[in-house]
């Protein structure tokens, strides 16, 4: 059945006015992706640290994990503040797909193997996070977020060094007879 032309046109106009439920939101793709990646990174650090505090008895691991929770809650807040100041959309909650696999592997570990795995994962996660944040700090297009990226970059560098030290200690522990 052919609809009269005016009905079709009205329908088309209505469609044009209806905003899709999940519009991309403001900000360049690059900026949106940075916000999303940073939020996921913070959440991942917190999830892994919570897991470590429930599972590990190693004082070095526990100290590192406690620090991660404190610091990543702060960076998470700083990101949210910048997102708000720049009137960007809040990132969706949760961790990314690759991080999910890391967390899943960690959840299945126990004892000294848990400690070594946590440390190794933290080395990798911080190296990856550092790259993300340094690139945006250097050439991102949103000034508020670029400032946050610059601050966070210093913190992540120190975390990365801490993670390297923790990993070395865990490997050393294994090497001892």
């Amino acid at each position: 059945m052919r609809l009269p032309l005016r009905v079709l046109t009205a329908g088309g106009a209505a469609l044009a006015l209806v905003a899709p439920a999940f519009a991309q939101g403001p900000g360049s793709q690059r900026t949106r992706e940075f916000v999303s990646a940073s939020a996921q990174s913070d959440q991942f650090e917190i999830d892994e640290a919570v897991t470590a505090l429930a599972q590990s008895e190693n004082p070095d691991v526990r100290g590192f994990a406690t620090r991660m929770i404190e610091d990543h809650r702060k960076t998470s807040q700083a990101l949210a503040d910048a997102v708000s100041r720049s009137k960007l959309a809040a990132p969706p909650p949760g961790i990314g797909g690759d991080q999910s696999m890391f967390l899943s592997a960690l959840q299945s570990a126990r004892g000294s193997e848990f400690d070594r795995l946590y440390a190794r994962q933290q080395v990798l996660a911080h190296h990856a996070a550092l790259v993300t944040v340094e690139v945006y700090a250097a050439s991102g297009d949103d000034p508020n977020l670029r400032a946050v990226a610059a601050d966070t970059s210093a913190l992540i560098q120190s975390h990365s060094a801490m993670a390297d030290q923790l990993a070395a200690k865990m490997e050393e522990g294994q090497a001892r007879p």
Partner: peptide
Amino acid sequence: GKLVTFGAT
């Protein structure tokens, strides 16, 4: 460890 972050994956 898995229990406290159960489902986070």
